[in-house]
Design a protein around this nucleic acid. Structure first.
Lengths: 193, 193
DNA sequence: GCATCCAAACCGACTAGTTGGTAGTCTACT
DNA sequence: AGTAGACTACCAACTAGTCGGTTTGGATGC
C-alpha cells in the first residue's frame, strides 16, 4: 500500500495538474504544498512521468468506481448519464476539481512522455466504453433516442463534455458548462410515450 | 508593418504552440527553428507573453477573415458551418495545423499571463458570435433546426468541435474528429420539406 | 561624391532563477 | 541490524530576459 505521505503527494499533484496540466507544475510546487523537501518526493516517486502515471491511474480508478456506483444507485440509463454530467457540474461549480485531468493532458499530448500518453488514451477509452454501454441500455429501454451509432454518440457526448470544460475555462464561467451539457442531455432524451 | 524575420518568428511560435501549448515551448525552440539567436527574438518580441498575444491576435484575425470568406462564398448557412468544420477536418488530416490555439490555451488558462488569457477569451467570443449568427440565419431559411436558443447551440457546437480535437489527440486518430463533427452537423440539418 | 548619422537587426556573453534528478547522511521504528 | 523516510547539498540543463557591442542599409547634409 501507499504511505500517508505518498498519498498526500498524489492528491497534491492531482490538484496541481488539474489547474496547470503537465509541464506547468513542478516538484518544487508539490514540495511547498506538502511541506516536504523536494528530494523526499523523489523518494516516493522517482520520476515526474511516474508520478503523473500514478495520478492518472488513480483518476481512471475513480472513474471506474464512480460509474459503477452510479450504475448500482440509478436504474435509468438516462439518469446515469445525467448523474455523470452533474458530477462534473458540481465539481466545476465549487472549483475543487475543475477539470478532467485526462482531457487536460490530451491537449498537451505531443509533449508528454510516452507512458503518460498511454494512460491518457486508456482513460478516454474507459469513459467512451461506459458512455456507449449506458447509451445502448437507454435505447433498449426507449429512454434515449440516437441519430447515430451508440459508439458515435458516446464519442460526441464525451467531446461535448470536454469542450464544455474548455469553454468554462476560457470564459471563466461555470454557467456555460451547465448550458452546454443541459442541451446535450435534452437531445438524448426520447419523447414521452 | 512587421519585418520578414518577425513574421517567421510568429509562424514558428504558432506551430510550436499548436503542438505544445504555452508553457512547453521556449525561445530556444524558436531560435533553433528560425535559425536566429535567442536575443534577436527578444529584439522583435521583448516578452514571451507579448509574442503569444501577437500569435493569438493573428489567429483571431484569420478566424475573422476566414469566416468572412466563407460567408461571401457560400450562401447556405448550413453549408457555411459545414465549411468551417471541414476546414479543421482538413487541417487535422494533413497535420499542418492540428489544433485551434485558443482552445489549447484554454486548457492552460490558470497558468497563463493575464494578457494572454484575455486574448483567449476574445477568440472564444468571436467564434461563438459567428456560429450564433450563422445558426440564426439557418433557422430563418428553414435549413437548420434547433432545440435550444441559437446562443446555446452555438456554444454546444463550439464545445463539440474543441472536444473532438481533444479526442483526436488523445486517441491519435483524425478519424474520430470527423465522426463526431459529422454527427453534430447531421443533427443540425432540418428534415427536407 | 562623400562623410555623417541613425535606427533596425543581430549576436556573444551573461544573469538569476527553475527544472528534474542524484548522492550521501541522519534518524526513527521495527 | 535493517529499512523507510526524510534531509542537506548538490548537479547539469534549461528558463525568460538583459547588456553592451557590432553590422547593415538608408537617409541627410555638404
Amino acid at each position: 500500500m501507499l504511505g500517508e505521505t505518498a498519498e498526500r503527494i498524489l492528491t497534491t499533484a492531482r490538484s496541481l495538474m488539474m489547474e496547470r496540466g503537465y509541464s506547468a507544475f513542478s516538484y518544487a510546487d508539490i514540495s511547498e504544498a506538502v511541506e516536504i523537501k523536494k528530494p523526499s518526493i523523489h523518494h516516493h516517486f522517482p520520476t515526474k512521468a511516474g508520478l503523473v502515471v500514478a495520478v492518472l491511474q488513480a483518476h481512471r480508478e475513480r472513474l471506474i468506481q464512480g460509474t459503477a456506483a452510479i450504475d448500482s444507485k440509478i436504474e435509468s440509463p438516462l439518469g446515469r448519464i445525467q448523474a455523470y454530467v452533474q458530477h462534473w457540474e458540481g465539481c466545476i461549480r465549487d472549483k475543487t476539481v475543475p477539470f478532467c485531468i485526462a482531457a487536460l493532458l490530451a491537449a498537451e499530448m505531443p509533449s508528454l512522455p510516452e507512458e503518460v500518453r498511454a494512460e491518457v488514451t486508456l482513460h478516454f477509452n474507459a469513459l467512451e466504453d461506459w458512455l456507449e454501454r449506458t447509451l445502448k441500455a437507454g435505447v433498449k429501454k426507449h429512454e434515449i433516442q440516437l441519430q447515430n451509432s451508440a459508439a458515435t454518440e458516446a464519442q460526441a457526448l464525451m467531446a461535448m463534455v470536454h469542450g464544455a470544460m474548455l469553454s468554462a475555462r476560457a470564459l471563466s464561467s461555470g454557467e456555460v458548462f451547465k448550458t452546454i451539457t443541459d442541451a446535450a442531455l435534452k437531445r438524448l432524451s426520447a419523447p414521452k410515450r
